[in-house]
């Protein structure tokens, strides 16, 4: 039982660490801001739960610390999408346009959306009451 738990927590740490580095590499390799957000998402949605599960499994017994660690996991998982959404929304308002390789419908849609956005700029914004 003990060796099984040790093995499980060790593999959680290894995979979690690998995923962290993957996110960092993706952050460096991807071509523009919007794709980099996807890379950052990898580290925050899977690496965080794995590392925290590793710590919980590595503890000698369940205690208050385990519950606090679970809360950290829930907070990171709940706040991460909100933070990325705030960032991409700010980038869009700042005039950044996503890089797309295939020109076509997507490009047209993007142009239409940016023009729509500019026209509705004065009309106010949903997220700001």
């Amino acid at each position: 039982m003990d060796t099984l738990l040790n093995f499980l927590s060790a593999s959680c740490f290894l995979i979690g660490g690998f995923l962290c580095i993957t996110g960092g590499v993706g952050l460096l390799r991807f071509p523009d801001f919007f794709t980099r957000v996807h890379a950052a998402g990898v580290t925050e949605t899977l690496a965080t739960p794995l590392l925290i599960t590793g710590i919980i499994l590595n503890q000698p017994d369940l205690s208050l610390d385990s519950i606090k660690l679970l809360m950290i996991m829930l907070i990171v998982l709940a706040t991460n999408p909100t933070a990325s959404h705030a960032m991409t929304k700010a980038a869009l308002h700042g005039g950044l346009v996503p890089f797309t390789r295939s020109k076509g419908d997507a490009e047209k849609e993007a142009k239409k959306q940016t023009s729509q956005k500019n026209s509705s700029e004065t009309g106010g914004d949903i997220s700001t009451p």
Binding site: T22, D32, F34, V42, S102, D105, A106
Partner: peptide, 18 residues
């Protein structure tokens, strides 16, 4: 996504649509 990040050719094709 992890597979795409480590692929040397970087096979991504971003799409932005409604």
């Amino acid at each position: 996504v992890v597979r795409r990040i480590w692929d040397p050719k970087l096979p991504i094709d971003p799409v932005w649509e409604r």
